[in-house]
Design a protein around this nucleic acid. Sequence first.
DNA 1: TCTCTAATGTGGGCATTGTATACATCCGCA
DNA 2: TGCGGATGTATACAATGCCCACATTAGAGA
Lengths: 205, 205
Amino acid sequence: MCAVSTSKLGYHHGDLRAACLTAALELLAEGDESTVSLRAVARRAGVSPNAPYRHYPDKDALLAAMATRGFHDLRDALIQAGTHAAEEDRFVPMAQAYVGFGISNPALFGLMFGHPCGRDHPETSAAAAETMAVLAERVGTAVPADRHDAFLTGAWALVHGLAALVMDGKLAADDRPALDAMIRSVVQTMLGQVGLGSGARDDAP
Amino acid sequence: MCAVSTSKLGYHHGDLRAACLTAALELLAEGDESTVSLRAVARRAGVSPNAPYRHYPDKDALLAAMATRGFHDLRDALIQAGTHAAEEDRFVPMAQAYVGFGISNPALFGLMFGHPCGRDHPETSAAAAETMAVLAERVGTAVPADRHDAFLTGAWALVHGLAALVMDGKLAADDRPALDAMIRSVVQTMLGQVGLGSGARDDAP
DNA sequence: TCTCTAATGTGGGCATTGTATACATCCGCA
DNA sequence: TGCGGATGTATACAATGCCCACATTAGAGA
């Protein structure tokens, strides 16, 4: 996996920076945010407790790097979802991808949006902005001009709120197809009036 | 403030349970979630580090109690906002109250929705459900029946997403009136056609 | 009024965590 | 060959969550 002269893994690790990041993401996926301690990360990377400090000034920096990775993954998922749909009906699959990302990576999602770690880290903020730009760009074309900003904000808030509520267990989500159908129904109900959405279709694809 | 036979505050505190809760809420308001340590709470309550354990089995129980209080406050704010408006235009002030609560108590809001502490605590879940029931009840009357569930889910997701995004700094919110105007614009754009919003009817109740 | 008991608060202690400092080791370049 | 900077280690410290044994007190029953 590593391609940076991995030969013997002796005193020097090779690419400890990346190893810490993946170890931290694994730990986060296996548990919740409290599972990610710098020492556990170091342990998993097979390295002394303080070694990560050579690559991240403090724990928040590691968390911010994780959040950055999360935003990039979310961005890619949104792009892919957007390309597989007709221009007028892009919003539904993108909403499904957005919520789906949250379902698949709940702790990471919480880190990306809930944790203050990204606030002071420009890389994380940039990644977040980039992600939202995808949403805006892919959807903005089909929006009536007079309500452009309000609609974009509303659409973004809608998907984000859906994801947050589903992840919080406030909305039933045991079954993925049922969840996708629910998202489709909600999105079409909310956007069908504004000029987006595909009219009156409410069957699953 | 306390009315539980506060006489001398000697060895026994009088109502340490409540004192811990308010101390914890103060600490949360002054900083972020990491500011709330059980020991700091005990310190502020003027009591030994382990005294809180007589009233809360562990830290999560205290956090859950805080979240419960938060949900009750949010519920009250929603109720009050809903009563001060005409029936058809209730949703805008309620959305403003929802977001306003988040702005005023960002750390508490994050605790209420982001933290897994409320998951295992039925009191917290009940308070959350109660809060959402207010939103649903006050709005549900004006919704077309065929899309009832989808609309309620969407409306809830919309306000919740708005709050989350504003609090994350993704949406400009330096000025409160401007924020309220933005919320009004977004909500009316998304909901105006469905039967709510500032719409076409003008009979006063 | 006196005593016993359970509730409540204290004190000491342990493992874990984030982080600072000093030291060891190694790679690349002169 | 030798040296310097980058990288990892060792040691240490304060803070935290939580467990245990003990002290204190309030209040019910005699």
